[in-house]
Amino acid sequence: MNSPIWNWEIAVYLFLGGMSAGLMILSCIRSGHSSPERLLPFLSVLILSVGMAALFMDLAFKTHVYRFYLAFQWKSPMSWGSWILLGIYPAALLFGLTRVEEAEIARLTPAPLLGTIHSARRWAISQERVLKQTNLFLGIALGVYTGILLSSLGRPAWNSAVLGPLFLVSGFSAGAAILTLFTEENNLHRWEMHAISAEFALILLYIFGLTRIGNPDGSTPADLFLGGRFTAIFWVFTVMIGLCLPFVLGRILRPPVGNYRFLGASFVLIGSFSLRWIIVTAGQS
């Protein structure tokens, strides 16, 4: 009766969902004029789709997946998440259309769809401000939801409201790391440094919060990370590799360039994935 409920599929889904949320937020708070940044809304949808494929793989009754959209349960974070995911597709794709040229659309779109896409683009451009605000809201909602999904289930190591903001910041950091691979703007580096600092503070708050929860045997869920089963993997992969190394690289090189830029981004991505993987697993131990 104690076999794991959720395995790698959910860790991958939460990681890619968070990354997609980060890219959506970045697409709203940055100008989007440079070549890679123009495509952020489309990239966020692509990454989210891969994450949703992992989520689909985890469903035990796959042919009932449509049931998510025949009900809304306000007390169920998974229900909120399902509807948020559904809202992201039109919002992000329409927002993306505001940043591509008509000629680009003509080159990439099959002829029968061309008229519809052009009309959608014209409408999206007229509603650009609303779309930007909607994308920002949905991006934040998605990032927070990936953490609340776990924290709402009441298991000791998940029993923390900090998980929502922690996964949001970590997702933002992962999104910035992906963007770092394609652009060298100093401005982006500043956002990354802030995100890493905030994530570190939230991790400390999360663990501190867990020390205040008592298990029946006198232990606390914080013991999992402070001497218990997940101590080494958490502090090495999530904290040292995922936060400390990219932060130190960023402070020394201001910002890292060339191979160091790729190295720093890779460290952030490793840390961001390990955070989900470890917390998903720790909550079920």
Partner: peptide
């Protein structure tokens, strides 16, 4: 006929 097998209920049950 409504269950998707998402396992959220299994995670939420305090009694396994």
């Amino acid at each position: 006929n409504k269950c998707t097998g998402c396992k959220a209920c299994i995670g939420a049950c305090p009694y396994n």
